[in-house]
Design a protein around this nucleic acid. Sequence first.
DNA 1: TGAAATGTTGGGGCG
DNA 2: ACGCCCCAACATTTC
Length: 482
Amino acid sequence: MSDRPIIVWYRNELRLQDHPALSAAVRTAAPVFPVYILDDEVAGRWKLGAASRWWLAKSLEALSRDIAHRGGRLILRRGDTLTELRRLAEQTGARAIHFTRGYEPWSAALEDRAKREFDRLGVGFRRYGGRLLREPEELCTGSGTPYQVFTPFWRAFRRDYTVPQPLPAPKRLTAPPPGLKSDALADWDLLPVRPDWSQGLATTWRPGEDGAHTRLKDFVSGALSGYANDRDRLDRSGTSRLSPHLTFGEISPAACWRAAVDALGEVRRSDQSVETFLKEIVWREFSHSLLFYFPRMPEQPLREEFEAFRWTNAMDHLKAWQKGKTGYPIVDAGMRELWATGYMHNRARMITASFLTKDLLLPWTVGEAWFWDTLVDADLANNAANWQWVAGCGADAAPFFRIFNPVLQGEKFDPDGDYIRRWIPELARVPAKDIHAPWSANAATLKQAGIELGESYPAPIVDHKAARKRALERYEDLRFGR
DNA sequence: TGAAATGTTGGGGCG
DNA sequence: ACGCCCCAACATTTC
């Protein structure tokens, strides 16, 4: 009996440390067989984007290596999740399947269906946390409804939260019998070929649990102390850049929380900076809670009146935005950073998203889809919640009339234009004074910088002042039902 | 986790 | 010296 193995079904927690489902399995002293199932159908239209597939390949490679170092083997399967789990349980004679709970719209139904199935088969099917610090059911308003405003959520969260002790990674794992089939990662075609656009991603990131912890250490000993101020600066490395590691669960949010709080004690870092960082972690919790309670959030505005909003459908504008050719340098720099590295600075995300939804009046779902495909940290909850926040249709959203001025945002958060120069080399020789609005520079300056507007760098595809006016009018239409 | 329009104030130039 | 105007600089309101 005791040698009947436990299957640990990996989903988005590609780590060995701080992994409740894995730890519980290891504690039983039964052989533990970790398995990852690539199910291209389960998520419907939200199947993994191209950048995520790249990251997944690299992350699974790392996890597989880490497991092998401990004497185990990561089993890879592709196909319908439930079918594959059933097959694995049969093939291994498993007594139980352990897994980490998900919050996507399809997760609860899948988990319930599987639970009934394995109950019938006499196989334990045990659900664990680990992706969030706290479960959505834990935090509700006094009247029992989910929070829809961040600040009260944050207060309630912070009031009585203490981070638990980390769960150590298992020292040894048991290899499953050699006959237990596993796909070859390479056969999954997760990596891009013809063309291989992943060079920039590979030089920017180190996917995997080691890479994640290295990143956290660097952040805590470096940028964390100035986080409150510098995280908004496009020209500084002021953010943690932990997001893709969190998305794929290479590091637990608890580990990030713990490291930040410990740093506070050790080095007397600015309380404000640590608090701001913790708040960002809780934004992630808030987004997941929203997705859990409002499963249509990725498709539907949380504020219903926005369903009547008259978005436009200008494909040429969309293409220009995607390629980073809008003629607004700060917008284009952000979009090109995304294309090159699978990542965009958070401030740039707000600016580019505001530009798409307000200046171009393209639907937020179009931007959401592009980010989903191109971001290595694409996360259904965060992506949907943040797009709705910018578009003004979210639960606790920025008001619609908060329209970013791309020139002012650039001057404020990239004062010398370094971020722009980094991602738009053709503007490298434009002086800082003109770099955020090259169209208003005088002809001699542009000539000297080697720029011909409309040739070497696009002229603005819309006039911001007019676009702002148009957006506000469209918003008025919504309010008065026109 | 805005920006623009509008209102108010106060210093300085100037007749 | 005085009132008037101009216009930063800052505050408030509006979108």
